[in-house]
Amino acid sequence: MNKKEYLEKLESELGQMSYKDVKDIMDDIGEHFDEGVAHGKTEEDIAAGLGSPEELAKSFREGGTVASVLQKKQAPVQNARQKDTTASAIFVILFNLFVAIPLWIAIVCAIFTVGAIEIGLIAGLVGLVLAIPGFGNFLAAGICLAITIALAVVFVAVLIILVTKYFVIGTGKYISWNKKIWKEGL
């Protein structure tokens, strides 16, 4: 395709643009050909470098449509996101108020109760050990009982340590989960 053919094709593809617009575009693309020839290129090479006249005409006709399409698509997404976070903030507040915080308090109470039992067991063990020398005939039975209570003390202590550990980890994870929902929605 030479300059003349390219410009004719472009002109016919521009369609219902005003005469002035079409003339301006013809001048610009015509100048591009002249510059290319001055740089030692052939008209055919320049035409190939410009891209097809159909596509070029389409770009001229559409002007800035690509940018406006992208903006239109973006706006509703942002709105929807904002709605989502409002709803999830309400969810976080209600869920914490009626489920998570009462549950959390219940677990803390349970841990303290088991702790109190542990203290009771230790006190009982100490009392028993102190009383053992006066047991006389029941010495063997007393020692057996003391060992049993001591095992129970160790078992409850391990239980408290494990439960407390996972409870603290769980609380931390729960708080970061809340923050995530608050910020990003469900």
Partner: peptide
């Protein structure tokens, strides 16, 4: 700058048809 020079500078860095700059300049 002028059209041919702009098309040349851009198409040297980014792979595109030389014609691309003209609708952009017009807009």
């Amino acid at each position: 700058s002028y059209g041919y020079d702009l098309a040349d500078s851009l198409s040297r860095m980014i792979q595109l048809a030389d014609g691309t700059v003209y609708p952009i300049l017009r807009k």
